[in-house]
């Protein structure tokens, strides 16, 4: 299988080149954010406040890692269920977010917003968090430290392996895959 390599910040051109089902390796900086961090990001946008990181072209990883053992930059860090972030996602896409990494289905609103604002949703393999940990080289908490495992961190990743679930053309790997392999 062909593997595509990308580096954030993502341009429209890169996002346009990705298709549901593509295997992709990400290298560079991505940001961790989950439930409560999303709530705060959206509140900041609504109040017109400056965000803790540049959203334009950014990739957010839905993750709440385990604590790092001594000598490790991070603990096991697999994706969490993305659907919980759906209510906050369209507004982030409208403000320049280009990529999201998580697991599980997205809402119709999020899928429409991905097509409208050219954003892509990647799936990381859930439950292989020790393997994922190895691809994260550096970690720096940049906001909301009080949220513990839910704080926003800047993660430097190398060959971080993901699959395109939703592209900007309306394709959904979860639907395509099931259609291909279902026996009824």
């Amino acid at each position: 299988m062909e593997i595509k390599r990308i580096m954030p910040p993502l341009t429209d051109e890169v996002v346009e080149s990705l298709r549901a089902g593509d295997r992709v390796l990400i290298s560079g900086i991505i940001y961790s954010a989950r439930d409560l961090a999303h709530k705060r990001l959206v509140e900041a946008i609504e109040k017109g406040e400056k965000l803790p990181f540049e959203l334009k072209g950014a990739i957010i990883y839905y993750v709440g890692p385990a604590p790092a053992k001594p000598g490790y930059p991070i603990g096991p860090a697999g994706p969490t269920t993305s659907g919980r972030m759906d209510p906050y996602t369209p507004i982030l896409l409208a403000h320049g977010l280009k990529g999201m990494i998580g697991k599980g289905n997205r809402s119709e609103e999020v899928k429409k917003a991905m097509m409208k604002y050219k954003g892509v949703y990647f799936g990381a393999v859930g439950g292989v968090a020790a393997l994922t940990m190895k691809k994260i080289k550096q970690v720096k908490i940049i906001a909301y430290e009080d949220l513990g495992p839910e704080a926003i961190s800047e993660l430097v990743v190398e060959d971080f392996s993901v699959i395109v679930i939703n592209d900007i053309y309306g394709n959904d790997l979860y639907e395509l895959g099931v259609k291909k392999y279902a026996k009824i």
């Binding site: 385990a66 096991p76 968090a129 020790a130 393997l131 940990m133």
Partner: peptide, 20 residues
């Protein structure tokens, strides 16, 4: 990847999944 992950977790005594 599931099998590879299990090996890393066992050898380094880190959890299989971040959601412990």
């Amino acid at each position: 990847q599931i099998l590879e992950n299990a090996e890393i977790a066992r050898n380094e005594m880190v959890p299989i999944c971040q959601d412990t």
